[in-house]
Design a protein around this nucleic acid. Structure first.
Lengths: 251, 251
DNA sequence: CGTTCCATTGAATGAGTTCAATAGTTGTGG
DNA sequence: CCACAACTATTGAACTCATTCAATGGAACG
């Protein structure tokens, strides 16, 4: 009664823990910074990547540990979180198929500044930081593509900073849900279902608030017919009104 | 009486509005992404840069305008600000000699997402986005160096996000002042003077709060002997206690 | 079938904003 | 050189949004 089960089914597709060889090349090809490579170069770098499966909840790398590898998501969804000294973590972003996380700059920090946790069970390819550096040097197009990805992430980070410092919680949560809808949403029965397990805790960490507040706001949004929610899932029912709320405040 | 004028003098050095030729090459050489270039390449790219002076308060580029150029600060200090739909702006960062701002990715947005405003009078070199892209392609070391800068900025942005979502205003302001001290601070009469005009408004925009709160917090910090302040300036008097406050909360 | 996790809701509290008023500082023009 | 206008900073008081503390109930999992 409180949680409408219009969408009882959820992300029922269990991700395979291990990747097939076909998948490997396919993923590497769709990875932004490798997409520009000619096939023969791709075949050359392919062996440098190591594959490994993770169960949902498992940590891929932890903040504070030596930053030795760069990870590429082949299947599944990964949370990149920043632990805070006191209290709950901050969710910096989600990585899905083809996206990377982990060590980037050899000159930068020696340690990871954030942790990556499997949100679904997933399959991850990884390459050592040294080999990645070598790739950057050897294939200039890889460096340029990586530059674009970083620029885009920087823009996204600045968007977040703007949100945090100028918008109330309700708007931040609305914006968060819209972004999730863009990234991992799928149309289902007239609503846009966010295709990943998503707890109130997750939303709270993305919007920089507490579980209770996230729950309250989302309950209200549900009552207003903007979204649908359930245990560890959410769907966008009225994209336009939600977007209006996200930018303009009160609808 | 209320504002101690222990440091009545301030950033009294008026920046020259126009750069000398010597300064040009010197600045380009200390610019991170050009530092790696051999002298002859530097001489080649030098003519691509246009120089121009700006008075304090002048806008170098404005958010929303077509992102056509990349700017390198030669002298002075530049504020990179993100205007918000409603209310005050957010100060994303400061750029001093050798640092760049403006258009980065040709693939990315066509428009600037933020504005750059001269904080002091300053001298700026700029290059067209197209020519910068050509430099990235022609000199791989430039691309790699730019990658490092972007990675560092991304880390800084994530630090900010963490602060915003997990720390109270007092700590954010303390951290802001410490960062400023690192970046543009100079030892003067036993304190670290922040060598740039810095209003409460500026601090507020950096810490994501209001002028009033910034004023209140800084007044308290002054009473506690952690900082010294005046009209449009601040100095760090007790770095250790300020740092303790920034991370640990109440001292 | 009970234990654990997740979500919801209430009430009290508090940090920070908002509104408003005052005052010191700087710069300008008569 | 002085008076006035504009800017910057400070401080008070009311208010509000969000957190915190706390308690309950449903859903999933073994």
């Amino acid at each position: 009664m409180m949680t409408r089960r219009y969408i009882p089914i959820q992300t029922e597709r269990i991700e395979p823990r291990h990747c097939t060889l076909d998948l490997r090349l396919q993923v590497l090809r769709q990875t932004p910074f490798l997409a520009a490579l000619p096939p023969e170069s791709l075949a050359q770098v392919n062996p440098l990547f190591v594959e490994r499966g993770y169960d949902a909840g498992q940590t891929i790398y932890a903040a504070g540990a030596p930053a030795t590898r760069l990870y590429v998501v082949a299947r599944g969804t990964v949370k990149v979180i920043r632990p805070t000294d006191s209290g709950p973590s901050v969710l910096l972003g989600l990585r899905t198929a083809g996206e990377f996380c982990g060590s980037l700059s050899a000159l930068g920090d020696r340690d990871y500044r954030d942790s990556a946790v499997a949100q679904t069970s997933c399959c991850i390819l990884s390459v050592s930081a040294g080999q990645f550096q070598a790739m950057l040097r050897r294939y200039p197009s890889v460096a340029l593509a990586t530059l674009d990805v970083l620029a885009a992430r920087l823009r996204a980070a600045h968007d977040l900073i703007e949100q945090y410092s100028s918008q109330p919680v309700e708007q931040r949560i609305a914006a968060t849900l819209l972004q999730l809808g863009e990234k991992v949403g799928q149309e289902r029965e007239g609503v846009r279902l966010i295709q990943m397990p998503l707890s109130r805790q997750d939303v709270a960490e993305m919007a920089g608030t507490t579980v209770e507040t996230a729950s309250r706001v989302m309950s209200q949004l549900r009552k207003d017919g903007l979204i649908q929610t359930g245990r560890r899932w959410a769907a966008i029912a009225d994209r336009d009104r939600l977007a209006a709320l996200a930018i303009g405040g009160r609808v």
